[in-house]
Design a protein around this nucleic acid. Structure first.
Length: 172
DNA sequence: TGCACGATCTCG
DNA sequence: GAGATCGTGCAT
């Protein structure tokens, strides 16, 4: 069995669109409370790119909620949506440039809300360092190079930004 | 201090 | 097609 290295911060310190595309095929490793480690291959992502992007939470500016997106790439950004689903995002880009990639699907489960449930996320993951965490990190398995793009889901309010094809879906 | 709504999903 | 369920941002 081959051991895969953990993705380094440099991987995430690039623009969100590039990172979202290259994350397809990478593996999320999650160590649960029980100590058991499970791995999930990323198959669907979305990029959220800066204050100008009206679909990005950072378009509201720097707030307690968006704070971590302003950090250098490589941290976890989680938030509660509809009062019940924890969305998993990885912060990308350089310090002071708010960006993130939303994990919409893994090999076993498609749907951002379902992913959060599968990984048993909660607010304590907010700001966690992917390179230091002992409970959630990303391993450098081969990127899936065959994929499709589409507009992001649920952002009809984002004017022209809703048209951007920043959703990446690995092909079967 | 209050209120409307959201990067969603499930059930009927 | 509606309900669950609550933090956040913005109005009051």
């Amino acid at each position: 069995m081959t051991a895969f290295s953990r993705l380094r911060p440099e991987f995430f310190r690039r623009d969100a669109v590039t990172v979202a595309r290259e994350l397809l095929g990478k593996t999320i490793a999650r160590r649960f409370e029980s100590g058991e480690i499970k791995r999930f291959v990323i198959v669907e992502t979305e990029a959220y790119l800066g204050e100008e992007d009206l679909a990005c939470h950072a378009s509201k500016g720097r707030t307690p909620r968006t704070e971590v997106m302003y950090h250098a790439g490589g941290k976890i950004y989680v938030y509660l949506i509809y009062g019940m689903y924890w969305m998993l995002n990885f912060v990308t880009g350089d310090d002071g440039h708010p960006q993130a990639v939303l994990i919409r699907g893994v090999d076993k489960v498609i749907g951002s809300g379902r992913v959060g449930r599968l990984l048993q996320l909660d607010r304590s993951f907010y700001g966690e360092d992917l390179y230091a965490s002992d409970r959630l990190w990303v391993e450098d398995t081969p990127t899936i190079v065959s994929y499709s793009t589409a507009p992001r889901v649920g952002v009809d309010y984002a004017k022209e930004w809703k048209e951007m094809k920043w959703r990446f879906i690995a092909n079967n």
